[in-house]
Nucleic acid binder design. Structure first.
Lengths: 336, 336
DNA sequence: CTGTTAGCGCATTCAG
DNA sequence: CTGAATGCGCTAACAG
């Protein structure tokens, strides 16, 4: 188990017969050191099984080579995909990405912010839990460190933002659907998420804008359970034959699952469209027609934003439509 | 963006007209402080927007109220479910769980260990990337701090372990299958993962032990892509009608997806069994028959292990069978 | 190129 | 109950 007391630079210096400064310079490689001493230091360090104490280093320096990421929920495959891509993007420049889950709670989110700020992270990437109520946390973070909001954003805070153009994504959905579906016989229903996050908000906006302000709408949360429940309600309310646009793949997954369980066919009886296009969810059967977010580019963009310590700036990426088996092939319905 | 320099305890002390010691005692609540001064301190702290510097505190104290978790891959829904449960378990006792992804790489895993040790975490939870090759990392971790291996373990290291009895899980699968499937007409094929991790190893062992040492076996990795590929090979090699036991839900998902795409029916033409029973994957359609791991109990067990600073010890949990629609109802085949 | 020294921010002795 | 002083482990100035 735990060693009694781990070796310190002073220990290494003593054993190697040099000063602590030489040890520091040798191990961090900040300055040239005589090869002979260098060897003695590395040997002594190895013998004592020395590990740098990053806490001491962090206290002395300003930077920690650490970036914090706070996600609302690790079980949402879209967020874990983002986390994974970010970790990969920061790996090459030697920056550690530390992930903290807010577990859907504003209090836990605030705790995460305090925790990362207290740890002196170089930058903080934050997927806010709530569009308005996360404002305090975002403001505290942005006041102390370079903060980048990801995927969702709280309006009016002076921090950077990286995300996808949700309205444009819904426009892609509209273009695809109008091309292959008879909207009179198979009207659109939106199964979305209540506008507590900007992404939920904007996707709902997009649907109303590109289809119609009166699109029938069921709003819940970003979960498969909600998708199932919504599908059950649609069947109960006589929405047989609808074209179901959803706010996320994970919702779409629940919708598809319930409909198939109830003996409906897709895309025969119903059509279902997802959003995100990322992670294992996208591998569902039948394959989901969805709007794919370019998560890899988004992660790289965040890395670039942090490395070049510029002014806070925002970047919206363009999503793309991915055709699957939950919607008819383009043109099939109208030309058939 | 970043403030020029954040307020320190000395700043607060100056503004409140007291000593830094009083500020420290007031804010951490370690000792009784005169209510009048207490008020002055809290007001000064609020005015300066003071945030404790955890780096300074960590350097002074031994503990950091932080536990590190290293996962091989965040995109695997089983690992992110574990991470989520652990975060939740540690939330109540006021411990921050910081997650680091090894991204499937031994080097990154080693970096994560060094990083967390350097940050003076109170304990380290580690899901090793590889059964043998992660040994060095585990040993380094265990020598410095209370280390708990999770789900997978490296043999011969003196650290704690929490996981599920994989062989018992496969026994549940055997019991279920022998009850409802005619194994002569619908022989078992195992689609597993190459034994690089102890879980892959033990599940393969279990299949060979409870079914037969000669069970036909395809080994890949823990991914849906591998499941698809394996299914394609089974079809190509004439394994029509097989009962497919897999090493993980995520593999089973790929298998099911490919088979359905190729027009096969489940559980008519093929039967598919998963393993893990956790996360969105478990919500697939058709619902997966799988072996569920008690992740919540496992997370609580780890918390308990860390709080009571005992000897390194191991705990194996018993998994349970969850019936889904990818296998026939019990008894249906043999009695029908 | 190397050694000595100071101080990052904090919690904790030890006096009072 | 409060304040002054010490040092956690490290790196950056500075002087040699």
């Amino acid at each position: 188990m735990a060693a009694h007391r781990s070796a310190t630079m002073a220990d290494v210096a003593r054993l190697a017969g040099v000063s602590v400064a030489t040890v520091s310079r040798t191990l961090s490689g900040t300055r040239a050191v005589d090869p002979a001493m260098q060897r003695k230091v590395t040997e002594a360090a190895a013998e004592l099984n020395y590990q740098v104490n990053l806490v001491g280093r962090a206290l002395r320096q300003t930077r920690t080579s650490t970036v914090g990421l706070i996600v609302p929920d690790l079980e949402n495959p879209y967020f874990s995909a983002l986390a994974q891509q970010l970790a990969r993007a920061f790996s090459a420049p030697g920056i550690d990405l530390l992930v903290f889950s807010a577990d859907g709670s504003l209090e836990t989110e605030a705790r995460g912010v305090r925790s990362f700020l207290g740890r002196q992270v170089d930058a903080l990437v934050l997927i806010p839990v709530h569009e308005q109520l996360s404002e305090a946390s975002v403001a505290i973070a942005a006041a102390a460190v370079h903060t980048i909001q990801l995927d969702r954003h709280v309006p009016g805070t002076a921090s950077s933002y990286v995300g996808v153009s949700n309205r444009a994504g819904m426009r892609l959905v509209r273009d695809h659907i109008t091309e292959c579906v008879d909207l009179d016989a198979q009207p659109v229903v939106y199964v979305g998420a209540a506008p507590g996050s900007s992404s939920a908000h904007e996707r709902l906006d997009g649907v109303r804008r590109w289809f119609s302000p009166e699109v029938p709408t069921l709003l819940g949360d970003f979960s498969a359970a909600w998708g199932r429940e919504a599908a059950a309600r649609l069947l109960a309310d006589g929405w047989e034959g609808a074209t179901i646009v959803t706010a996320a793949d994970i919702i779409a997954l629940g919708v598809v699952s319930h409909l198939l369980h109830q003996g409906r066919s897709i895309p025969g009886d119903f059509r279902v469209i997802g959003f995100d296009g990322v992670g294992a969810v996208a591998l569902a059967h039948p394959s989901l027609t969805t709007v794919r977010q370019p998560v890899e580019e988004m992660a790289q963009s965040i890395r670039a934003l942090i490395e070049s310590d510029e002014e806070p700036s925002s970047r919206w990426f363009e999503p793309e439509l991915v055709l699957g088996a939950t919607s008819p092939a383009s043109g099939s319905e109208l030309s058939g």
